[in-house]
Design a protein around this nucleic acid. Structure first.
Lengths: 117, 117
DNA sequence: GATAGTACCTTGTCGCACAAGGTACCGTGT
DNA sequence: ACACGGTACCTTGTGCGACAAGGTACTATC
C-alpha cells in the first residue's frame, strides 16, 4: 500500500502559471545554460542582474534542481582551493528552460501591456 | 520600554533588490493605478496576465498594502450583492509604484541580456 | 424563507529565502 | 609540522507569504 504524494510545489505543469515564484529558478537555469559554472559564478551573475541571492538560498535551489533532473554536475579540481561542482543542464533542464523562456516573454508582454494602459 | 521590531520583510529599500518576490505586489499596484477596482476586478486582471492568484492570496495582500499606507479604499454599494471595497493608490502608493516600474524595467533588461548571451 | 449569487475575510499548511553557523580542502609563512 | 587565510561546499532555524478550504454576510428571486 503506497501513499501517493502530489508534491504540489514541484508540479512543473502549473509552474508555467506561477512565473513570479520561479524567477530565481529561471535565472539560474539561464546562467547554467551559457556554459559550465559553479556556485560562486552563479552568485556573481545573479547579483549582476540585481537578483540578490545568498549561499543559503542558492545551494538548496541547486540541490532541488538536481533532484528534479534538470541539472547535473561534475567535480573539477581547482588550482587554488577545494574542488568545485560544475553544473550543466540535462536534456530535461534544456527543455524546461525553453518553456520558461516562452513563459517569460509572455509575462513581460502582459505586464508591459498593463503598464501602458 | 519599547521593543523595536525591524520588520525585515517590509523593508522597501531592499525590495528594490528582490523584485521577484514583489511581482504580485507590483502587478496589483499597477492594476489599481489604472482606476478604481475591487478585489474581483483585480483577480480577473491578474489572471489575464497569467499570474494565477486566488482570493486567499489577494485579500491578505491588499490588507498588507493598506496597512503599509500604499492603498486606500471606499465602500461602494453594488446594484446586485453586498457592498464592495474599491481600492485606490495613496500618494505613497504612487511613489512606490513608480519605483517598482523602474526596477521592473532594469530587471527585464538584465534578464534579456542573460537570454541573449 | 429557502436558494443562488456575490463579496469579503480567516485559518492551517507548506515551501522557500535568508541569516548564521559548520565542515573541509588548499597553499603559504614561520 | 602546523597554524593561518582563502575558497567552496552544505545545514539548521526562522519567518513570510501563497495557497486550499472553509466561513460570514448581504441582495435579489422564486
Amino acid at each position: 500500500m503506497y501513499i501517493v504524494r502530489m508534491d504540489k510545489n514541484r508540479n512543473y505543469e502549473e509552474a508555467k502559471l506561477q512565473m513570479r515564484k520561479g524567477m530565481l529558478e529561471f535565472c539560474t537555469l539561464l546562467i547554467i545554460s551559457r556554459g559550465e559554472v559553479y556556485a560562486s559564478d552563479i552568485l556573481k551573475e545573479l547579483k549582476k542582474a540585481d537578483l540578490i541571492v545568498v549561499e543559503g538560498t542558492l545551494y538548496p535551489l541547486l540541490s532541488r534542481l538536481k533532484s528534479d533532473g534538470l541539472l547535473d554536475y561534475d567535480w573539477k579540481e581547482s588550482s587554488a582551493g577545494p574542488p568545485r561542482k560544475y553544473y550543466t543542464l540535462t536534456a530535461n533542464g534544456k527543455e524546461k528552460l525553453s518553456q520558461l523562456k516562452t513563459t517569460w516573454k509572455s509575462l513581460v508582454e502582459s505586464i508591459n501591456t498593463l503598464i501602458r494602459t
